[in-house]
């Protein structure tokens, strides 16, 4: 799967291929379950709520990130696009999520990422939930400015950063 991730990042493999590889890997792990130590290979890496913030209808980039995170072994709850900010908080509570991914493709909707972080603080949840931001106008500097834990430039980097923060 690591090699698949590299080829995905270089534009040589695409989502269907990633999913086929992930499906094959899951089937292989299942077959080897008895040979592996108890639980190893099947445990989820963490729970992530992912969505595009309110006012922004862009779906595809966020969907690719969700799929790649899922293929990497995370439990992903993709709550869609144009998501009311309170819904992020509600879903995090419901799923006891370890991380939230906030996507925005427009400079005019970036502010929503900051507002979700504020809501996490207001609800006393900020210390328990990592925050990842992404989307074309987002940058590492923006992530630092609003107090996010990380910025990911693309889906492959989102997987790497999620692993760094949650494992």
């Amino acid at each position: 799967m690591n090699q698949v991730g590299v080829l995905f990042e270089r534009g040589k493999l695409f989502l269907p291929h990633v999913m086929m590889a992930a499906d094959a890997m899951s089937a292989g792990v299942e077959l080897l379950q008895d040979e592996l130590a108890s639980g190893e290979g099947s445990a989820k890496l963490g729970v992530i709520v992912n969505g595009t913030v309110e006012g922004d209808v862009h779906d595809i980039g966020k969907a690719i990130v969700s799929t790649m995170l899922q293929a990497a072994g995370f439990e992903v709850h993709d709550i869609g696009r144009d998501v009311p900010l309170q819904n992020f908080i509600d879903k995090i509570k419901e799923t006891n999520a370890d991380m939230v991914g906030l996507s925005a493709l427009m400079t005019t909707t970036l502010q929503g990422q900051k507002e979700v972080i504020e809501l996490l603080k207001e609800n006393g949840m900020r210390d328990d939930v990592k925050v990842m931001v992404g989307g074309a106008p987002a940058t590492d500097a923006w992530a630092k400015k609003i107090g996010a834990d990380c910025y990911a430039e693309n889906a492959s980097e989102a997987v790497v950063k999620a692993k760094e923060l949650l494992l």
Partner: peptide, 16 residues
């Protein structure tokens, strides 16, 4: 049907 949703459910040929 949204191919992103289908793909996440491993319904690859349906997404295509």
């Amino acid at each position: 049907e949204n191919p992103g949703d289908l793909m996440k459910a491993f319904k690859i040929s349906e997404a295509q």
